[in-house]
C-alpha cells in the first residue's frame, strides 16, 4: 500500500431517515468501494427512523450512529462530522441513504481534496445535465438559490441543494462548530465561502430514488424556500459581522 507514502482516511457519512428499502443496497455498494491510498469507513447515521432502518443497518455493520432523538438531516450529518473530527479523519463525505448518490463518483469527488485543489467538493447534477434532473419545481428553486448565492458571494454553484459533497479536515472543523439543522445544503455553501474555504463542483449523474420519499414534500416546499432564504441571509450577515470584528 506504500505506493504514494500517504494513506488518507475517508469517512463516508450516510444520514438515513426511514430508508429501510435503500440503506442495505447503499451499504453493500459502499463496501465494494476501494480507492488506492485511501482508507474508507462507512458510517450510517440513523436519525430516529420509524421503520426498520436500524435493524437493516445492524445486519450490515457494527459501526453506526443511532440518534435517540430526531435531529433533521443537518444534525445527523453533523454527528458524522463530529465522529470524523474525534477520530482524526482527513476527509468526510456525505452520501445520502436513499441511493440517489452514485458510488462510482466518490473517487472523483475526493480527487480535488487529495490534490489540495479545494476544501469542499460538491457533486452537481446540472454540470453534465445527465441522469436524474429533479422536478421542475425543485429545479426552479435551485435556480433561485444560484442567483442569491451569486449575488451574495460572487460565485456560481450550479447545484446548491446537492447533498453529495466531500469536505477536508479544515472544513470538518468548521462544520463541527456550526452546521444548520434542517435543509442545511445551500446555507452550508455560504458558511464554507465565508470561512475562506475553496468550493469546487464536479459533474455527477444521479439516480431517482428507488424507494421511500424525499425529505422535502410538495406541501413543505414553500416553507423550505422561506427557511433556506432566511438561513442564507442571516448566516451571511452574521459571518460578515464576525469577519469585520475580527479585522478590527
Amino acid at each position: 500500500m506504500e505506493r504514494t507514502g500517504i494513506n488518507k482516511k475517508l469517512l463516508i457519512v450516510i444520514p438515513c431517515y426511514n430508508e429501510q428499502g435503500n440503506i442495505g443496497k447503499v451499504l453493500n455498494a459502499l463496501s465494494q468501494l476501494s480507492i488506492p491510498g485511501v482508507e474508507i469507513t462507512a458510517l450510517p447515521v440513523n436519525d430516529c427512523s420509524k421503520d426498520n432502518t436500524l435493524e437493516e443497518i445492524r445486519s450490515h455493520t457494527h459501526l453506526y450512529v443511532n440518534l435517540p432523538v430526531n435531529l433533521g438531516i443537518g444534525g445527523a450529518v453533523q454527528s458524522g462530522y463530529k465522529y470524523a473530527k474525534k477520530n482524526g479523519y482527513d476527509m468526510a463525505l456525505q452520501f445520502d441513504g436513499d441511493g440517489q448518490h452514485p458510488v462510482e463518483y466518490i473517487h472523483e469527488l475526493i480527487k480535488p481534496l487529495l490534490e489540495d485543489k479545494a476544501n469542499v467538493v460538491i457533486g452537481s447534477r446540472f454540470l453534465a445535465k445527465e441522469g436524474f434532473q429533479s422536478s421542475y419545481l425543485r429545479r426552479s428553486g435551485i435556480n433561485y438559490f444560484r442567483r442569491v448565492i451569486r449575488m451574495l458571494l460572487g460565485i456560481t454553484i450550479s447545484d446548491s441543494t446537492s447533498g453529495f459533497r466531500a469536505i477536508d479536515k479544515k472544513t470538518i472543523d468548521v462544520v463541527c462548530n456550526y452546521y444548520p439543522d434542517t435543509y442545511p445544503e445551500p446555507e452550508a455553501i455560504i458558511l464554507y465561502h465565508m470561512n475562506s474555504l475553496v468550493i469546487k463542483e464536479i459533474p455527477v449523474v444521479m439516480k431517482a430514488r428507488e424507494s421511500g420519499t424525499s425529505s422535502i414534500g410538495t406541501f413543505s416546499s414553500i416553507y423550505y424556500m422561506m427557511k433556506v432564504s432566511l438561513g442564507i441571509l442571516f448566516i451571511y450577515i452574521r459571518l460578515k459581522a464576525n469577519g469585520k470584528r475580527r479585522t478590527i
Binding site: L63, L71, D181
Partner: peptide, 24 residues
C-alpha cells in the same frame, strides 16, 4: 434549549458508538 438538546443527542449517540467499539 434546542441547540443544547442537539449537542447532547450527538454526544450521547457518539459515546454509545465508542462503547460498542470497545466491547467489540
Amino acid at each position: 434549549l434546542q441547540k443544547q438538546i442537539k449537542d447532547l443527542t450527538q454526544e450521547h449517540a457518539l459515546m454509545k458508538l465508542e462503547l460498542e467499539k470497545k466491547k467489540l
